[in-house]
Amino acid sequence: MPETAAQLPGAAGAAQAAEPTWQERYGVAAREVYRRTLLELARTDPRIICVDSDMGGLETLFGEELPSQYVNVGIAEANLMGVSAGLAATGLLPYANTLSGFAAARACEQVKIDVAGNNLPVRIVATHAGLSAGHYGPTHHAVEDLAILRTLPNLTVVVPADAVETEYAVRATADLPGPLFLRLGRAATPLVHEEPYEFTVGKARELRAGTDVTIVATGPYPVSMALEAARELAARGVSARVLNMHTIKPLDREAVLAAARETGGIVTVEDHLVAGGLGAAVCEVVTQEAPCRVHRIGVPDRFFDHVADERQLLELAGINPAEIAAAAARLAAAPR
């Protein structure tokens, strides 16, 4: 059962003097919050095993406090997935740590056959997703990971919108009986959530109500850009609904169909190829059940060999609030 905000640390009433503020708690990279949360969970759940592939830092964080719940397989992603599947088969809960591109592409077959194929409770936690690796270059970008992994049966695919949602997602999936792919970025991103809320796997969160058009976004910058676009649209008299589609699989079909039926169209936003990701998943739902106009915003069909940071790469890809607002305004103005 997914946990609700009421059960989460930081959710209870007024903060004590010694308690860190919301910003102090979450104003760091999502992957740091993940690590902290996993360590907290692992202290009380001996089934949790942190499986490292030389990510850096886990060897001290886990290796020093919970050495019996830590194993480093080195720079070997195929083996990482196979070993994790084997651990899970013996009743343990392995968290396989790697980069998103390495999980989805390099070790794809092991994820497909050994993890997803066996429906084992392996949690693949992948950082550097989308264009978040920035100046590291296209070898470290992962803009095809959702397209690949959302096709695999049994695999739950979650993309937190910020560090807060990362903690909620890690806690909510702790007892998931099947495999999980948790898609994280690299550096800190703007906080979308300023207070506790209820996170449920597979249920999109409406961040803003609207009736003229719907913006469906996944991932840190896409979601915060969608909100910014909605504010711009509101100033122009356009009422835009904003959905944070944090779970790509299973997709919240009801939320998508409601958007298709109740608003003038859907704009999807993702830090992922236009092909195969969130936009494609939304199209698959509406074309069969509630045809509507869909405009997909994402990374175009090309490799990014520019040296730039994440924000600049997104801008180069045409992923920004102005593009989102323009597309949404067109859909809102079109005859229904």
Binding site: S68, G91, D114
Partner: peptide, 30 residues
């Protein structure tokens, strides 16, 4: 895997030793 006695489906070569290693680690751990 649904055949009794089969722990993992196999056939794509190069998977089995990783799986068995994970099992060995898991047995040791538990």
């Amino acid at each position: 895997r649904r055949l009794p006695g089969v722990e993992f489906p196999t056939g794509s070569l190069g998977h089995g030793l990783s799986l068995a290693s994970g099992v060995a680690l898991g047995l040791r751990r538990t």
